[in-house]
Structure formats: structure tokens, C-alpha cells
């Protein structure tokens, strides 16, 4: 279900916690699984449950509680835009509108080529850097003007194409 590399990463996370407290690694395990599969399917959640010796529903509770987990497929690049108040005061909504227009999709939608999913995010703890964009839960881009947003989309497209070629 998961690659050896992913399992090794999960094992490293498990080792952070005292013996018998494997469950503590559930968020990390789900994150690593999501990084590998793009989203958390029922099978993945069951696998994680078995790996960590937890009841599947307990894993499901965690997967549905933390909103960076995706329980449905998303595009290759999930772009999360913060529109909370401090960001909204400094262009967060303008940035979101610009992305919607450029990608032709609304929040919670995926472009037809499967490349981008747009999500409305809550506070990322970077309000001074508004507008703030998070790509695939990992890469944060700050102070995003329309020009920077455009070039980000371009570079992501290029990155994807390059990966496609390889």
C-alpha cells in the first residue's frame, strides 16, 4: 500500500514516542500516506490503522478532524489561500479571486486537467506576509502579488511537465 521509503519515514515518526504509543504517529502516518497517494482513500486509512494497531474508525476520526487531510482526490497541486481577516485586509481575497479567474475554478474545485485544486484556508500563522499561499501542504509562498501568482502557476505547470517527461 505504501512504499518502503514511506514506511521508513513512518517508523521514524513512531520512534519519537514512548513504547506502546504508536498511535501518536497517526497524524504523521496519514500525512506521509497522503504525500505519496495525493489523498486519503478508505484503503489507505485502513492500512494506517492496521500499521499502527488502531481501530480504523479512530484513524478516520483523526483524518476528518484535521483539515489539511484530503478525503477526496485533489489535483497535482493543491493551492490553499488564506482569506482570514488579517490576510483579507491585505489582499488575501484579491489573490484568491485572481487564482479563481486564472484557473477558472472556485474553492474546492479542481481544474479539468487535474493539475490544480483551489482551497480556502484558515490562518496559517503568516499574517504579516499576506497574501499567503500554501502548495501541497508543504511549500508556503508569501506576499503574493498577481504577478507572483502568475509566475507561480507557470512554474508549477513547468514542474509538472518536466515530471511528466521524466
Amino acid at each position: 500500500m505504501l512504499s518502503q521509503e514511506a514506511l521508513a519515514r513512518i517508523d521514524r515518526e513512531i520512534a519519537k514516542y514512548p513504547p506502546g504509543k504508536k498511535q501518536s504517529a497517526v497524524m504523521a502516518a496519514l500525512r506521509i500516506a497522503q504525500e505519496e497517494h495525493g489523498w486519503l482513500s478508505q484503503e489507505i486509512i485502513s492500512f494506517v490503522a492496521e500499521y499502527l494497531e488502531m481501530p480504523p474508525v479512530a484513524v478516520y476520526e483523526v483524518a476528518t478532524f484535521y483539515n489539511m487531510f484530503d478525503l477526496k482526490p485533489v489535483g497535482r497541486y493543491k493551492i490553499t489561500v488564506c482569506t482570514n481577516l488579517p490576510c483579507a485586509l491585505s489582499g488575501g481575497e484579491h489573490a484568491a479571486d485572481h487564482l479563481k479567474e486564472r484557473l477558472g475554478i472556485g474553492f474546492g474545485e479542481t481544474t479539468s486537467d487535474g493539475l490544480f485544486t483551489l482551497k480556502e484556508g484558515e490562518c496559517m500563522g503568516a499574517c504579516g506576509d499576506a497574501p499567503v499561499i500554501l502548495v501541497n501542504n508543504r511549500r508556503m509562498f508569501c506576499r503574493m502579488t498577481r504577478e507572483r501568482l502568475d509566475s507561480l502557476l507557470e512554474s508549477l505547470r513547468a514542474e509538472s511537465e518536466e515530471k511528466g517527461r521524466r
Partner: peptide
């Protein structure tokens, strides 16, 4: 150790 949250 560091523990990463995930959006809550």
C-alpha cells in the same frame, strides 16, 4: 521531538 499539526 517535533510533532507536526495538520490544520486544527
Amino acid at each position: 521531538y517535533a510533532h507536526l499539526g495538520y490544520g486544527a
